[in-house]
């Protein structure tokens, strides 16, 4: 009898021990996962907010074919079909070299400009880590239209067509719904009326995105110029650029629609050459379409590696 009691007691003990063991199993798996720093994803939905670049990069090996349209002034009214008749376009290709480095080229109908850029992600925002994403954007722009009039005795060189953009993109995804980005910007134009203006324009841009539903967001961006605000563009007064829009996610791409007082699509054009203003209703309707192609497959999907 006593023996049976001891036996059953011991058995109970060992069963209890193994149950406790089972509960601990989950905890054993959990351990290293806590405090893991993870990069925040999808601060913005596309590589552009509206005109500005966002901190988002293309994935490595992805080619993005972009068609960007800006129509004429809505305020032109019926005669120009509310701007439809005077569309400008940028057609471009972007490519992700690594997950933190992308490049792009494009041609603009406005000023027949060709542009190219490099964008590098320097710091990623992390859960339990770095609070912001920091990227650098460097661009070059060459106008291709007819030489503008220059003072007698001077010559118009090719280098006069060039301008350079440097931007820091500082972004934070505050929540699943709200992302904001600050953009200190330096634009150097090789040719300006240097008796009145500086070759270098300093500006600060702010852009953002607020998600209103699972697949729709409201976007906006504004640039304030710290100098050269009174600079003329081809003899016309310029304004600060303000754009407001919406983006809709469809299966294959993000469709961005917006109104802007800027007709230009490159940084030089929309920061320093915006000749229209919201106050007079001189808005341009525009949209960005992008189509991505996976050129280099991720390693899990290459040839023999895919044995699953």
């Amino acid at each position: 009898m006593r023996k049976a009691f001891i036996l059953s007691f011991l058995f109970a003990c060992s069963t209890a021990a193994s149950y406790a063991q089972a509960d601990k199993l989950m905890a054993e798996l959990d351990e290293p996962a806590t405090n893991k720093k993870e990069d925040v994803s999808a601060t913005f939905k596309a590589t552009r907010i509206i005109n500005s670049s966002s901190v988002e990069n293309l994935a490595a090996g992805v080619l993005d074919f972009r068609i960007l349209h800006r129509f004429g002034r809505v305020s032109d009214g019926f005669d120009n079909a509310f701007g439809f008749d005077n569309a400008t376009t940028r057609i471009g290709l972007d490519y992700g070299i690594t997950k933190w480095l992308m490049v792009g080229i494009g041609h603009n109908t406005l000023y027949k400009a060709n542009d190219g850029f490099v964008k590098a992600k320097l710091l990623p925002q992390q859960n339990n880590g770095i609070p912001i994403t920091l990227s650098y954007l460097g661009g070059i722009n060459a106008t291709g239209d007819k030489a503008p009039p220059v003072p007698p005795g001077t010559e118009y060189f090719f280098t006069h067509r060039l301008s350079y953009t440097h931007q820091l993109l500082i972004a934070r995804k505050f929540s699943n719904r709200i992302s904001l980005q600050l953009m200190p910007t330096v634009i150097h134009q090789n040719l300006v009326d240097s008796s009145k203006y500086s070759n270098t324009t300093y500006a600060i841009g702010v852009g953002g995105r607020v998600k209103v539903s699972k697949r729709m967001a409201i976007t906006g961006e504004y640039y304030y110029r710290a100098n050269n605000a009174d600079m003329l563009s081809y003899g016309v007064k310029t304004y600060n650029s303000l754009s407001l829009g919406a983006e809709i996610e469809t299966g294959g791409h993000v469709f961005q629609l917006f109104f802007s007082n800027s007709l230009g699509i490159t940084e030089r054009a929309f920061v320093t050459q915006t000749t229209d203003t919201w106050e007079k209703g001189q808005l341009h309707f525009g949209f960005n379409i992008s189509r991505v192609f996976t050129v280099v497959k991720p390693k899990e999907f290459r040839g023999d590696a895919k044995k699953w």
Partner: peptide, 12 residues
Amino acid sequence: ERALMQEHFNEN
């Protein structure tokens, strides 16, 4: 295989 699909998978 497609980065965009991966983003949609996680986001939506």
